[in-house]
């Protein structure tokens, strides 16, 4: 397969649904992005916007009721949605790893840290037992776990939250994946421990040159970690672009609203400007723009038609009708 670009990952019009008793939940509804090797992509949006499902779709670790219903996920140019179970297992072991908000999702409480780490390394490499154990200790040292030899003999519950998170990162990195997906890795931690983990991830990225996908609802974490940002709402991409483009030239009303609603240095003594209304219900998606019911700037067209992707900068794309506001108002008259 031809490979004219530097993209390690290309996601094209990805659709993922859950088939539940109450009907089909279209959790991811046409997501596209490209990611260059060695960069960090942030996926941000409120809870239920489809961030995790996007990540799980890439790795094909969806719940039983979930299925990719359309689109492509290209890894080094190859569409991995076409891969079989065995190929995907290899992908997950050696090419792409994930860490979760709750480390206990990946750690087994009944086994020692050492046995779990060694097991993972044995499974995904051709190391022998002794080598695997050495590698495990090396990984623990790398992620800043002190006294790694004695930690190997401990069980997960004997460690603090921050330590467990480090062990999970060690586990995810043991096979030197090309891509690390981090799904809210610091959401449950104190800011001080969060700072340790973020610092660690940035360090490891420099050392190992890996690509990171950072899933979070925290705009602060996004701003301090990411080169590229994908803003999601209701299973769709609102906007994607560089960190500077998203923070300094937001072109989707939802992104603008999100940035207005958070406390930051320049609005400490002013009222915050909240986004009105309540979070979206995927079973009652509006016909037009998903954000329309909560949007202060909404026009008639927003009610009726799903906004197309507007290119507002070289690498900056926004799905919001406001980007052709003048054009639209000239034709249709007033707003709703």
């Amino acid at each position: 397969m031809g490979q004219e670009n530097n993209y390690i990952l290309e996601v094209k019009d990805l659709h993922t649904s859950f088939f539940t008793d109450t009907g089909e939940v279209q959790a991811v509804n046409g997501i596209s992005f490209n990611l260059e090797a060695g960069k960090t992509l942030g996926i941000v949006g409120e809870s239920g916007s489809g961030k995790s499902v996007t990540a799980y779709s890439i790795m094909q670790i969806l719940a039983e009721t979930g299925r990719i219903t359309g689109g492509e996920v290209r890894f080094h140019g190859e569409d991995i949605t076409k891969w079989n179970k065995k190929q995907m297992q290899k992908f997950r072991g050696a090419k792409c790893s994930i860490i979760f908000q709750d480390p206990m999702t990946s750690l087994n409480p009944v086994f020692t840290i050492g046995s779990q780490l060694t097991e993972a390394i044995l499974l995904h490499t051709d190391n022998n037992k002794k080598q695997a154990k050495e590698r495990a200790i090396e990984m623990l040292t790398l992620v800043g776990v002190n006294e790694p030899e004695s930690r190997m003999k401990q069980h997960p519950h004997e460690l603090s939250g921050g330590m467990r998170q480090r062990v999970m990162i060690a586990m995810a990195l043991a096979c030197e994946p090309d891509i690390l997906i981090a799904d809210e890795p610091t959401t449950a931690l104190d800011v001080t421990i969060q700072a340790q983990i973020l610092e660690l991830m940035q360090d490891l990225q420099k050392k190992l040159g890996m690509t990171i996908i950072m899933v979070t609802h925290d705009l602060g974490v996004i701003a301090s970690m990411c080169d590229e940002i994908l803003v999601m709402y209701g299973g769709r991409v609102c906007e994607r672009g560089t960190a500077d483009a998203i923070f300094y030239h937001p072109a989707h009303e939802y992104t603008k609203g999100l940035l207005r609603s958070i406390p930051k240095a320049d609005n400490m003594n002013e009222k915050l400007i909240p986004i009105g209304g309540t979070p979206i219900n995927l079973l009652q998606m509006p016909e037009g723009c998903a954000f329309c019911p909560r949007c202060d700037a909404a026009m008639k067209i927003c009610l009726k038609e799903k906004p197309q992707e507007f290119r507002v900068g070289e690498t900056h794309i926004a799905s919001c009708w406001m980007n052709i506001k003048e054009l639209y108002e000239a034709q249709e008259g007033e707003r709703v």
């Binding site: 800011v191 001080t192 969060q194 700072a195 340790q196 973020l198 610092e199 925290d218 705009l219 602060g220 974490v221 996004i222 701003a223 301090s224 970690m225 960190a243 500077d244 923070f247 300094y248 940035l259 958070i262 930051k264 240095a265």
Partner: peptide
Amino acid sequence: AVPIPDPETARKSKRIV
């Protein structure tokens, strides 16, 4: 340690970990 929601500030500031 507080991540500041501003890329410019984030690039300039150094965390005291």
